[in-house]
Amino acid sequence: MIKFCQKFKTYFSSSFIPYNPKGFKDVSKYIQNHQSIQIKLCDFDVSKDQFIYAYNNFLNSIQDDDFNLYVQEVCDKQLADQFIEGLSRIQNQSLKLEKVLNDEVQEEIFFTEFNFFISVNRNISLYDHTVLQSLDEFPKFIQLNSQAKELLNCVQIGAFIKSKLSLKISDFEHEPENFHHVRFMVLKDAEELKSLFSTLKSILFYNEKEVYFGNNPTWKIIDLDRNMGKQYPLFF
């Protein structure tokens, strides 16, 4: 009975928002592609610190008055809606959400995946697309189907991040020194899509950085602690 209650407590605490307060302790079996992804990101002039910074910014904002607007800017629409709904449930049930800062934690990041998404409609959730084709290799290429005037070729990057910041829900189980899995997607600036010459040039010479990142990309969080992956396994 005690064991059942503990399991229920863990599930209950992590089901409010798409964030698992316990995180992940042993990530070694998931990071076999870490080095090759890190080399690829260096080719794109992308620093690993950018991911930790973006993740920390997101956690820092969760108690801000304008969080509902902010989360829709920096997260996939469906993920954002889950956070907004979850925070409302926490408040309605008189529970407390706390940000925990532990300066003794050594921040780390280990990359898990590097995927390409083709024909992404930036105006809808990634999870509202349908899959036309998926090549299960590394990196994975996923061809999507959506009706839109401007379709993007996007890079998706997953990583386990250990941060000084963590979230705690009332007195439920909480492991501040564990990793959390975050999936990011990069979106090219909308203005760059209007430059036909630039687009043709990057495709002709196949400059991957220009094709997928452009000059002023926007980063979005599309999944946290593998919450969305459980519901949409075709994408991951």
Rank of each mutant, 00 (worst) to 15 (best):
I2W: 08
Y19Q: 12
P21N: 14
K22P: 03
G23K: 05
F24L: 07
K25Q: 09
K25A: 09
K25L: 11
K25P: 00
D26I: 05
V27C: 12
K40S: 15
K40A: 15
D43L: 10
D43K: 14
D43A: 13
D45S: 14
D49R: 10
Q50Y: 11
I52R: 06
Y53S: 12
N56I: 06
N57S: 14
N57T: 11
F58V: 03
L59I: 15
S61L: 00
I62K: 02
Q63A: 08
D65A: 14
F67E: 03
L69W: 07
E73K: 09
V74K: 05
L79D: 02
A80F: 05
Q82C: 10
G86I: 08
Q91H: 14
Q93Y: 13
L97G: 05
E98S: 15
K99F: 00
V100A: 04
L101S: 10
L101C: 08
N102T: 09
E104K: 15
V105N: 11
Q106M: 05
I109A: 03
E113T: 13
I118F: 09
I118W: 05
R122D: 10
S125M: 07
S125W: 00
Y127I: 09
Q133G: 14
Q133Y: 12
E137K: 15
F138Y: 15
K140Y: 06
F141V: 15
L144C: 06
L144K: 01
L144S: 04
N153M: 10
N153E: 10
Q156L: 08
I157K: 03
G158K: 01
G158P: 02
F160S: 01
F160C: 02
I161D: 05
K164L: 01
L167R: 05
K168M: 08
S170E: 11
S170R: 04
H174Y: 06
E175F: 08
P176W: 01
E177A: 11
E177N: 13
V182A: 04
V186G: 04
L187V: 04
L187P: 04
L193F: 07
K194E: 13
K194M: 03
S198Y: 09
T199N: 13
T199I: 07
K201C: 04
S202L: 02
L204N: 11
L204H: 13
F205C: 10
N207Q: 15
Y212H: 12
P217G: 06
T218L: 06
I221A: 01
D223N: 12
R226P: 01
G229Y: 00
G229R: 06
Q231H: 05
Y232W: 12
Y232K: 07
P233H: 08
P233F: 09
F235K: 03
